[in-house]
């Protein structure tokens, strides 16, 4: 049996070889050019410091991404602690005799302009972008990874260190919030 080839690191080539890939990876998760750029840069700096810990078992890119992942998670943790709990409007009574029922003014109402043609309207796209923008950051990330990037539930859970029931609570709240936002800004008009 041949011995596995050990991977090596060459920081001078990092930008050319990996920066686009890492930027792409980050922008799908944080949705902001400046923040994504900063996180990629910080990742390179931290990687430089951590080079002595590199054992050569993973490829250079895999190793860099593992550091980037931690940076992204830290970014969200910081964000959450700064702003306190991100505000989510609840649509259901949380206790009392009506627990679990729709809150009267948040209950779904009939939508106008919901026909096949209407939903392809580009103004709807703007309304949707606005509503997604208004989701708490963590919700937005989980929602987009699941809905748009089609990630497996398990993949997202591993990456963010959350359980699958956490994930579904987030998706549920994100969608309930998006529904009421679209109703306010588009379908209710």
């Amino acid at each position: 049996m041949t011995e596995k080839k050990k991977h090596t690191l060459d920081p001078n080539k990092w930008i050319d070889l990996h920066s686009d890939y890492m930027y792409n990876y980050t922008i799908t998760r944080v949705n902001d050019h400046e923040i994504a750029k900063d996180l990629v840069q910080e990742t390179f700096f931290s990687s430089l410091k951590a080079m002595k810990n590199f054992k050569g078992e993973a490829s250079e890119r895999t190793w860099l991404i593992s550091i980037l992942k931690r940076k992204i998670i830290d970014h969200y943790r910081k964000k959450n602690s700064k702003k306190g709990k991100a505000e989510v409007r609840m649509s259901f009574y949380e206790n009392g005799e009506n627990k679990g029922k729709w809150i009267e003014e948040r209950a779904p109402s009939l939508w106008g302009n919901a026909g096949e043609e209407a939903i392809e309207n580009s103004e709807l796209k703007s309304a949707l972008d606005h509503c997604i923008e208004n989701l708490p950051e963590k919700y937005r990330m989980v929602f987009l990874l699941k809905t748009v990037q089609n990630y497996e539930t398990e993949e997202i859970c591993n990456e963010l260190g959350i359980t699958s029931s956490n994930l579904w609570v987030i998706i549920h709240r994100a969608r309930v919030q998006l529904r009421s936002c679209l109703e306010e800004n588009w379908f209710g008009k």
């Binding site: 922008i27 109402s109 919901a114 709807l124 949707l128 990037q149 529904r179």
Partner: peptide, 25 residues
């Protein structure tokens, strides 16, 4: 009603939200 609207939302997401194509610096 929620369920019907939810199906419609899924459709809307499919029409209007796309995977990021390779974005470069």
């Amino acid at each position: 009603l929620y369920s019907e609207q939810n199906e419609l939302m899924t459709k809307i997401f499919k029409i209007h939200l796309h995977k990021n194509k390779d974005v470069k610096l």
